[in-house]
Write a protein that binds this DNA or RNA. Sequence first.
DNA 1: ATATACCTTCGAGTGAACTCTATAGCAAGG
DNA 2: CCTTGCTATAGAGTTCACTCGAAGGTATAT
Lengths: 126, 126
Amino acid sequence: MKIQTFTIQKVSDMTGLSPHTLRYYEELGLLNKIGRNEHSYRMYTQADISWIHFLLRLRSTSMPIAQMQQFSSLRSMGDETIALRLELLENHHNQVQEQIDHLTENLDKIARKIHHYKELLNNGSK
Amino acid sequence: MKIQTFTIQKVSDMTGLSPHTLRYYEELGLLNKIGRNEHSYRMYTQADISWIHFLLRLRSTSMPIAQMQQFSSLRSMGDETIALRLELLENHHNQVQEQIDHLTENLDKIARKIHHYKELLNNGSK
DNA sequence: ATATACCTTCGAGTGAACTCTATAGCAAGG
DNA sequence: CCTTGCTATAGAGTTCACTCGAAGGTATAT
């Protein structure tokens, strides 16, 4: 039984990353050794796609590409780096939590400004 | 009684924006008519500084500069634009709330990955 | 067989938001 | 009066994360 693989366009559809960006990520070392078919077309496995989805979680929580490179590099070094990866991820987790806290605080201040504008509008039409 | 004013360096210290960025923001039309002293040095009023702090809230909730320009432009047009500003701000409020929701969801997935790594570490030392 | 719609690599281009450089005027301490 | 450090303007340069273009090989439908 063969492992199912996907062309770059399929993966683009599945992840939302353009083929250009998928090649770019590979070149940056974020994706390790994507297989090729007989015409040297990239063929992605399900594992590759899961990894891309995980990378997208990191990206969408504002992890810089440089740090994702570091993480990917540790991953490609095998199981001895799990402790380091864990540390990196826990740090990131804390930063995201802070990010959320700041956003929540700012959101509250914006809500106050909205309230202020609403009052101005009411007094204006008095 | 004179109004107290502040040099660009003071304002930089108070807001965290560099003097460069303060001039840049002014040039973009985000700050309206900063006063000048007899040597044509910028002198910022307390009102200017409050406005900068508000801009920073918008920025740190990822409002693009272009939208801040739009908002600032409405502000400089006076009270007839309050309804429009309110609308703009409410839209932004909703976007920030979505942002927070997405972050929270991703944070949760990252927490699972952390949990997964911790399990790997425990089994490894068994 | 030909059109079209993929795929490849490599290097250049883009847009957002700063950030810095160069050149020059002003100003307070010793 | 000189040095150090502020201020000014205009325009060029930087960083990040893509994004595109050119040139050419491959694949499927008619």
